[in-house]
Design a protein around this nucleic acid. Sequence first.
DNA 1: GTCCAATGGTCTGAGTCCAGACCATTGACC
DNA 2: GGTCAATGGTCTGGACTCAGACCATTGGAC
Lengths: 253, 253
Amino acid sequence: MSAARAAHPQGDPDRAGLPDAVLRPVRGHHAFEACVEQLATAIRLGVYPRGTTLPPERELAARLQVSRATLREAMAALRQAGLVATTRGRGGGTVVTLEPRTPSARRAARTDPATRRDRLDALEFRRVVEPGAAALAAGVPLDDAARAQLEEAHDAVRSATRPADHRQADSRFHLTVATLTGSPRMVEAVTSVQATLHEMLLAIPVLPTNIAHSDRQHAAVVRAILAGKADHARRALEEHCDDTAALLRGLVG
Amino acid sequence: MSAARAAHPQGDPDRAGLPDAVLRPVRGHHAFEACVEQLATAIRLGVYPRGTTLPPERELAARLQVSRATLREAMAALRQAGLVATTRGRGGGTVVTLEPRTPSARRAARTDPATRRDRLDALEFRRVVEPGAAALAAGVPLDDAARAQLEEAHDAVRSATRPADHRQADSRFHLTVATLTGSPRMVEAVTSVQATLHEMLLAIPVLPTNIAHSDRQHAAVVRAILAGKADHARRALEEHCDDTAALLRGLVG
DNA sequence: GTCCAATGGTCTGAGTCCAGACCATTGACC
DNA sequence: GGTCAATGGTCTGGACTCAGACCATTGGAC
């Protein structure tokens, strides 16, 4: 065994960077917190828009793979935070009450270095995964339901009048594109990225010019995906990411 | 509140797909299992090659953000599985003893549908993230240490003689590329993909032709990254992914 | 040879999470 | 109007995890 030993500080020093990068914190220990986080994100991003009813507790618990007790703690937290309201009895359930937040510049508060790094990382990672998702979606045979879903998500963005609704519809649009790929990893990656992006976008005011610009890019993405032009789709979404990132990097820096 | 209610089965039926895709199981309940999983993966992929010593328990526990007690349970499992051996006292520690597995065709066993789906998903996702990582790495200013790290990882693949070593060196090479981007999300994505890929690649025999082909593609990737040619790097790695995937899809199907 | 720093090994009490059974309320359906 | 299925609310015993202090072993520094 002694011959096999290569102590870790000195042994293969050039490879020392890999372990640091690869080992990451194992899940946030509090299952309950993770549930709150995930549900709150889904609600804020508009996956469950205001007024819709969440699935029954038993179903949600099964989907998140936590006990119902834990899920209920999370629900209680969401209730307390004013995101949802609950009614009992048949036909009851938990309804989303959160009024979507309106983007505004007021919140350009000081962000700590860790948050800052994470946000820049999200922008970088997004530039890879979202265009990739679009290309993938364009390369997959889409049934009519999928095509309709994409167009509706797009229409929702265009027709949103209030900034808050526009913000949610935009998130939903990007998530929808990811969904079309049929790849769970892709959906997870885009969800994570959109959650961080959402925070950032709430901190800058909405300019009609930006919205129009962004809508044109969305349209190009939709066209390319529906036409099956993978390269076009990727390029269009890359531009979109670049422009959004340019808008946000100032804020983050 | 009644006006706000839109019951979840019927309300906005077109959007029904989003929640299903977005909500994912909150991480594995057993922190201990997650530790085993992550450490075993790191060891199998060659992040910690045979003979190297893992970081001290206290440090690992801090990095994985679990208590030392939990980490030790994981270590005990790895020890029992023969992946590592532990010695006490100063200069002691936990040493990797796992002899890397040799790829072989014997293991092309029946895979259940869930595994099959996950593997196909990994191939699809990989085709997006790894080329994206290469492009990103090419666009980032790399210091000398980083350039040397990349070249060494590449050399290790080329100079590996035994199939088992080649397999690990290949994983390390791809992880190294991801590391160069400096993006934690990217590293996590590539790690996850490589873990699944590794399983698959162990189940097919190693053909010298394939290795030579793959090495040429690796070389092209390295050249492009070092030259800062993002598009070339992406394209080269895309080809590599496509070729590997073609090799594997037969196995998975 | 002695000291002691670094490392793995052990213990304890408190907090969290789980599985599942059971209760309470409500409205859909007949 | 009565029934009952669907939904949220509650409880319990046991398993897992945590934080941190303390013990045991080893080899390097002097």
